[in-house]
Computed example of a mutant assay.
Amino acid sequence: MTADPSRDCQAPAGGSGHRFDAERRWDASMSLGFAADWNASAAGRTRMIRARHHGPLRVQRPFYPETSHRHPGTMAALGEPCHVYLLHPPGGLVSGDRLGIEVGVERGAHALLTTPAATKLYRADSHGVAWSQTNRLRVADGGLLEWLPQETIAFDGSRGLQRTEVELEGSARCLGWELMALGRPASHLPFASGRIEQRFRLVRDGRPLWMERQPLDPTHPRFVGRWGQGGASVQATLWAVGLADLHEAVEAVRGALPASARWAVTQRHDVLLLRYLGVSRNEAWDLCSAAWQVLRPRMAGRDACEPRIWRT
Rank of each mutant, 00 (worst) to 15 (best):
Met1Asn: 02
Ala3Arg: 08
Asp4Tyr: 09
Cys9Ser: 15
Ala11His: 14
Gly14Leu: 11
Ser16Phe: 05
Gly17Asn: 15
His18Ile: 12
Arg19Trp: 13
Phe20Leu: 04
Phe20Pro: 03
Glu23Asp: 13
Trp26Thr: 12
Ala28Met: 14
Ala36Gly: 01
Ala36His: 01
Asn39Glu: 11
Ala40Arg: 13
Gly44Asn: 06
Ile49Cys: 15
His53Glu: 10
Leu57Asn: 03
Arg58Pro: 01
Val59Lys: 02
Arg61Cys: 03
Pro65Tyr: 06
Ser68Ile: 11
His69Ile: 05
His71Glu: 12
Pro72Tyr: 04
Pro72Asp: 11
Ala77His: 10
Leu78Asn: 02
Gly79Ala: 08
Glu80Met: 04
Glu80Asn: 03
Val84Tyr: 01
His88Arg: 07
His88Val: 04
Pro89Cys: 00
Ser95Asn: 10
Gly96Lys: 07
Arg98Ser: 11
Leu99His: 08
Glu102Pro: 00
Ala111Leu: 03
Thr115Ile: 09
Ala117Cys: 08
Thr119Ile: 04
Tyr122His: 15
Ala124Asn: 02
Asp125Arg: 06
Ala130Asp: 15
Ser132Thr: 10
Arg138Asn: 10
Val139Tyr: 10
Leu145Met: 09
Trp147Ala: 08
Asp156His: 05
Ser158Lys: 01
Gly160Ile: 08
Gly160Pro: 01
Arg163Trp: 12
Arg163Gly: 02
Glu165Trp: 01
Leu168Gln: 01
Ser171Pro: 00
Ala172Ser: 00
Ala172Thr: 00
Arg173Gly: 02
Arg173Pro: 03
Leu175Tyr: 12
Trp177His: 14
Met180Thr: 06
Leu182Ile: 04
Gly183Ser: 07
Arg184Pro: 07
Ala186Phe: 02
Leu189Asp: 15
Ser193Gly: 11
Arg201Gly: 12
Arg201Lys: 09
Asp205Arg: 02
Gly206Gln: 05
Met211His: 05
Leu216His: 12
Thr219Ser: 15
Phe223Pro: 03
Gly225Cys: 06
Gly230Leu: 11
Gly230His: 08
Ser233His: 04
Ser233Asn: 00
Val234His: 06
Ala236Ser: 09
Leu243Gly: 04
Ala244Gly: 00
Asp245Thr: 05
Leu246Cys: 13
His247Cys: 09
Glu248Pro: 01
Val250Phe: 05
Val250Leu: 10
Glu251Phe: 05
Ala256Tyr: 01
Arg262Asp: 13
Arg262Ala: 11
Thr266Val: 14
Gly278Asp: 00
Val279Asn: 14
Arg281Ser: 15
Asn282Asp: 15
Asn282Val: 13
Ser289Ile: 00
Val294Lys: 05
Leu295His: 11
Pro297Leu: 07
Arg298Val: 07
Met299Gly: 02
Met299Gln: 09
Arg311Pro: 03
Arg311Tyr: 07
